[in-house]
C-alpha cells in the first residue's frame, strides 16, 4: 500500500542524506555514533531470517541487505573520521554521551517478556523492534545538548522519523484490508513516533520555514 511504500522510501532517503552529509562535508558533527551502532544491531538482529532463506519477496530481501550494508558502512565512515578529521571525531565523541546500556538492558528484557514465540529468531526480532523504537535517543540527546544542528542532519532525523510514522497508517490499512494486527510492531512504532514528536514540532516550526534548527 501507498503508506508502506512512502515509508520505505523515506527510510531510504534518510540513509542517502546521512551518507551524503558524511561524504560531502567530510565531518560528522552532530551525528551520534552510538545511534548508528544501535541501528547496525537493530538490522542485524531483525533480518536474521535472511539466513533461513524463506524470503518474502525480492523487494524485501534487497531492502534488508541494503539496510544492513549501509548501516555498517555509516559506522565505518564515521570511524574513518578518526584519521581524516580527528577534530570533528573528538568533538562528536565529546557530545555523544548517552549511556546505551540503559537502552540495551531494558530492550533485552522486554524482548523476553513480549514476543510471538520463544525461539532465537523471534526473540532477536522482538529485541530489534524494541531497540529500534529507542535507537534515536542518543542522537536526540546529542541534539538537545548542543542546541543546534546542521540542516542536513535535521533532514536526516526527520526522514528517519517519518518512516516509522508512515508505518502507522500502513498498519491501519492492513488491519482493514487483511485483518492483520501486529501488536508488537504497532506498539513500538507508536512509541518511536512519540519520541520524535518534539523534534517534528521544532522541525516544522523552524526548518520548514527556512530558519535554522535551533532549540528554544
Amino acid at each position: 500500500n501507498i503508506f508502506r511504500i512512502l515509508a520505505d522510501l523515506s527510510h531510504l532517503a534518510s540513509i542517502v542524506i546521512l551518507l551524503e552529509t558524511i561524504r560531502k562535508a567530510r565531518q560528522i558533527d552532530g551525528i551520534s555514533l552510538k545511534t548508528q551502532i544501535l541501528y547496525v544491531l537493530v538490522f542485524c538482529t531483525r533480518y536474521l531470517d535472511l539466513l533461513t532463506f524463506r524470503w518474502t519477496s525480492l523487494y524485501n530481501t534487497l531492502m534488508k541487505f541494503f539496510f544492513i550494508g549501509t548501516s555498517v558502512y555509516v559506522v565505518k565512515l564515521m570511524q574513518d573520521c578518526k584519521l581524516t578529521n580527528p577534530v570533528s571525531y573528538k568533538d562528536m565523541m565529546f557530545r555523544d554521551t548517552f549511556q546505551i546500556k540503559y537502552l540495551l538492558g531494558p530492550c533485552a528484557l522486554l524482548a523476553l517478556v513480549f514476543n510471538y514465540k520463544f525461539t532465537v529468531l523471534e526473540l532477536c526480532w522482538s529485541f530489534s523492534i524494541w531497540l529500534e523504537s529507542v535507537a534515536i535517543l542518543p542522537q536526540l540527546f546529542m541534539l538537545s545538548r548542543s542546541g543546534k544542528a546542521s540542516t542536513l542532519t535535521t533532514h536526516y532525523i526527520f526522514a528517519l522519523g517519518l518512516y516509522r510514522a508512515l508505518y502507522i497508517p500502513n498498519w491501519i490499512w492492513r488491519y482493514y484490508s487483511e485483518n492483520r494486527l501486529e501488536k508488537l510492531s504497532i506498539f513500538t512504532g507508536l512509541l518511536q513516533t512519540a519520541l520524535y514528536s518534539d523534534f517534528f514540532y521544532i522541525y516544522y516550526r523552524k526548518v520548514m520555514k527556512g530558519r535554522g534548527f535551533e532549540l528554544p
Binding site: 518474502t56 526480532w125 492483520r180 494486527l181 501486529e182
Partner: peptide, 10 residues
C-alpha cells in the same frame, strides 16, 4: 484478527 508470524515488513 490474526497475528502472523511472518515478518514481511522492514
Amino acid at each position: 484478527t490474526t497475528t502472523p508470524l511472518e515478518h514481511d515488513e522492514l
